[in-house]
Design a protein around this nucleic acid. Structure first.
Lengths: 152, 152
DNA sequence: GACACCTCCTTGACTACTCAAGCATATCTC
DNA sequence: GAGATATGCTTGAGTAGTCAAGGAGGTGTC
């Protein structure tokens, strides 16, 4: 097996393990999944803490229906609000509520703890984690914090 | 956001993109998903091309029911056979059939093509791919080809 | 050899997505 | 301004997994 295929298969396997750990941490403390957290985090990075649902789908690598379904529980528990567009009645925005912002801040703390745990044993150096992030950023995942260095 | 969390989130996102590409390549040519391919590949690495279903689950990071459900279509199309254990009537083996071995060889060619594609643009060096595989092997994914270097 | 207990596996009910279809609204062309 | 086409979103049906429960078989103790 080539190095590339080996790396790809390892990546798929690693993802499942990571997802379980984040789901456990976030679910236990905040009752949300990693997918929920990721949605909220993405919204928090958008100007005005809101995005058109179709853009959110694109950013998360989901389909529009995935976003519709994923947002339902977050709207129900009041973390996300649905805003209409004044100019175009087709579009609906997903917007973080005040509660959503607060809860997300807590979730972020938890997520950082989980990440620390993951990279603690065996211990990773900052350089290795950065190297991993760098290599992964080449693989189609758009990644977070797109703000250009020096921008904003 | 810490480097670790950033890397973890990128990894989750990258996995989804990779899985889609493998599913498209393998599904189009062989009618199987990446999950199917991974199951077959694992079996092919086991002595006698067979494993107890519970061990297969462990190796793939699935639950026992995930294996039961995942094997059903592979048994139906004759790539995997169900073997009983002579000593212990509880255990059932999942075993690659002759057809399964042949088809897997073809799938492996396709998977290598997909992996080549993935790492071709932007071009990765062998060292970078190896580096990625190395970093990922630390993240709970047991990885493939457990045979030690020098073995087999 | 009867009982408790453990292991392997499957099943029913659920979750989180997908795709295909459909509805509502915009936009473009004439 | 009417029709064709494109866009944004939701919904129904299907897929791939999860967990909890349970059946069938093995094991250990007395």
């Amino acid at each position: 097996m080539s190095r590339g295929l080996d790396a790809a298969l390892r990546l798929v396997r690693a993802q499942a393990a990571l997802m379980k750990r984040f789901d456990a941490g976030l679910g236990g403390l905040h009752g949300v999944s990693l997918a929920d957290f990721t949605m909220l985090l993405r919204l928090s990075e958008a100007p005005g803490d809101r995005m058109r649902r179709v853009d959110l789908a694109e950013a998360l690598g989901l389909t529009a229906s995935g976003v519709t379904r994923g947002l339902v529980p977050l709207e129900r528990i009041g973390l996300v609000r649905r805003d209409a567009d004044a100019r175009d009645a087709r579009v609906a925005y997903a917007a973080l509520t005040e509660t959503g912002r607060e809860r997300l801040a807590d979730m972020l703390v938890t997520a950082e703890h989980v990440a620390e745990d993951i990279f603690a044993e065996p211990p990773w150096t900052k350089e290795e984690a950065a190297q991993l992030a760098g290599l992964l950023s080449r693989l189609g995942g758009t990644g977070f914090t797109r703000r250009e260095p020096g921008g904003a």
